[in-house]
């Protein structure tokens, strides 16, 4: 089939971008969306033009590197599917497709469809962990974890950090991403000691990065390639409230020694 693409081209973070139209010819329905872009790029290279830059790595829907707005939907029209797993049989001959980068001020464009998502890393660094120094762990079965809690924690932990939630949110909010990590760790017994500092730290960092706030549109859940539930957002809100109410101030030497 033959398609027409309208692609956002932007040379670098500082440059101004614009849409450029490209034909995509002889597209096979078995191709993935990214393989279709590969073919377009081969043609661009042959014609002496700069190929379209887009992020990708595993191409099997797990690393979270790929991500682009396809016809106004994060990762394209198929639910629970990353762009790399979207196949061209979704499209018909003659279709026009608009491709844009994730749009959020906290995710500045690096080039074309590539954005900088390091804000997510900083949110994790602000508390998205359980402090378990290597070598200090008790036996794996010392603390039983109810299966239901472990399963729910796994649902939250399935997040691939692709940023589709932010991209799809009308407010460019990172609540689903943050809530998934807060919930994953907060549901497990191992995560209890740091539960309050974790949620407060991560939310503070999330706000500082300049993401928007949640107004419960739930576009994030619909766009999430792992279908992570917005219930985790409610759970994080609850945790945050409790953490604020329960917080009796930190001891003066909270970080004693490790730094």
């Amino acid at each position: 089939m033959n398609l027409t693409l309208h692609v956002w081209r932007q040379k670098n973070a500082a440059a101004r971008g614009r849409f450029v139209t490209y034909p995509a010819s002889d597209v096979s329905p078995d191709m993935s969306f990214l393989e279709m872009l590969d073919v377009v790029n081969e043609a661009l290279i042959a014609g002496g033009e700069d190929p379209i830059a887009f992020d990708h790595d595993c191409r099997e829907g797990i690393c979270g590197t790929c991500g682009m707005m396809i016809d106004g939907q994060a990762h394209g029209p198929r639910r629970a599917t990353t762009a790399c797993q979207l196949h061209m049989r979704t499209y018909r001959d003659g279709d026009e497709i608009t491709i844009e980068p994730w749009r959020a001020d906290a995710f500045p464009v690096v080039k074309d469809l590539v954005v900088d998502r390091s804000a997510f890393d900083r949110i994790v660094a602000a508390g998205g962990f359980i402090t378990a120094r290597t070598g200090s762990a008790p036996d794996g079965n010392a603390v039983p974890v109810p299966k239901a809690a472990a399963d729910l924690a796994m649902d939250a932990a399935a997040c691939i950090g692709c940023g589709a939630c932010v991209a799809a949110c009308p407010n460019a909010s990172a609540m689903l991403f943050t809530a998934a990590k807060v919930s994953h760790l907060g549901l497990l017994p191992q995560g209890q000691p740091e539960r309050h500092t974790r949620v407060r730290g991560m939310v503070a960092q999330m706000d500082a990065e300049g993401f928007g706030t949640c107004t419960n549109h739930f576009e994030c859940e619909a766009a999430c390639p792992k279908s992570i539930s917005v219930r985790f957002i409610a759970r994080m809100n609850r945790d945050y409230l409790v953490a604020t109410l329960a917080d009796r101030g930190e001891p003066a030497s909270a970080e004693g020694g490790t730094g």
Partner: peptide, 20 residues
């Protein structure tokens, strides 16, 4: 030791109904 370490970090390994 790896399993112990990962459990302590919160890796959500599959569990049986008894929690093990």
């Amino acid at each position: 030791e790896i399993i112990d370490q990962c459990v302590a970090q919160g890796v959500p390994f599959a569990r049986e109904y008894g929690g093990l």
